[in-house]
């Protein structure tokens, strides 16, 4: 048997969740606790730089979240980090070049622009009474991920379900490591060097999410 030699979880350095006043960070902290580990919340650049793993959460509106990052100087810190970094939901979107939401310049880590899901009301509902009403905005559902191409998805099967809540999306690029469909295919996750980002919420995605979070912490 070829057993992978991975140091046990928790035997390494600190896990830091970036606390910049945007998002449901409590849930991520608890999800890590359920894996038997401890994470600290911090907005201190030094503590973030020294972490073994960094989680960059985000819920809410892009431009105000970006503004909060800038106020703490964290927009300069995050792109220079050397350890594994995981952006979640809006965190992932802010790691991209740009977001249509609030006309927001991102951190430029993932080479893609974030855009709004096509709204079938544009042009007037009355003119298109037979429009497909199953695509609603925001997308709030368990969607399934495919085209998994990263150690982030170790022991995760194609088409497993994860929880998605968002109105803006990033298209598929060569940095995409997981794909979802919502009317159109889009990026469910990205990777570039030590940077990872998931559009979905691993901390809310039941056992599949726990596995993905565990995989990240074992990188």
């Amino acid at each position: 048997m070829n057993k992978e030699r991975v140091p046990p979880l928790g035997a390494r350095g600190q896990i830091v969740i970036i606390d910049y006043g945007a998002g449901n960070i409590q849930s991520i902290k608890f999800a890590i606790q359920r894996l038997g580990l401890t994470a600290v919340l911090s907005n201190d650049p030094e503590e973030i730089r020294n972490a073994d793993k960094v989680i960059f959460p985000g819920v809410g509106e892009a431009s105000s979240a970006m503004q909060k990052l800038r106020e703490g100087g964290l927009d300069k810190v995050i792109p220079t980090l050397q350890q594994p970094v995981l952006g979640i939901c809006l965190g992932m979107q802010l790691m991209c070049n740009y977001s249509e939401e609030g006309n927001t310049e991102g951190l430029g880590i993932f080479d893609v622009d974030v855009v709004r899901f096509p709204d079938d009301r544009v042009g007037g509902r009355e003119s298109a009474p037979s429009a497909d009403r199953s695509i609603k905005i925001p997308q709030i559902q368990w969607n399934s991920i495919s085209h998994l191409t990263s150690p982030l998805f170790k022991n995760v099967a194609e088409h497993e379900f994860i929880y998605m809540v968002h109105s803006y999306y990033a298209p598929v690029t060569d940095q995409t490591i997981a794909v979802c469909e919502y009317g159109i295919p889009y990026s469910a996750a990205f990777a570039k060097a030590n940077f990872y980002g998931t559009q979905f919420h691993p901390e809310k995605s039941s056992r599949t999410g726990e596995q993905i979070l565990k995989n990240f912490l074992e990188l």
């Binding site: 893609v112 199953s134 399934s144 495919s146 298209p171 598929v172 690029t173 060569d174 794909v179 469909e181």
Partner: peptide, 26 residues
């Protein structure tokens, strides 16, 4: 607003593999 600069032709990864193609939401 600045123009979107995505290269939508970079969906190359998807060309040879089948998506579920479902439009129904879960």
């Amino acid at each position: 607003m600045r123009p979107i600069t995505n290269n939508y032709n970079c969906n190359y990864k998807l060309k040879n593999t089948r998506l579920r193609g479902h439009k129904m939401i879960t």
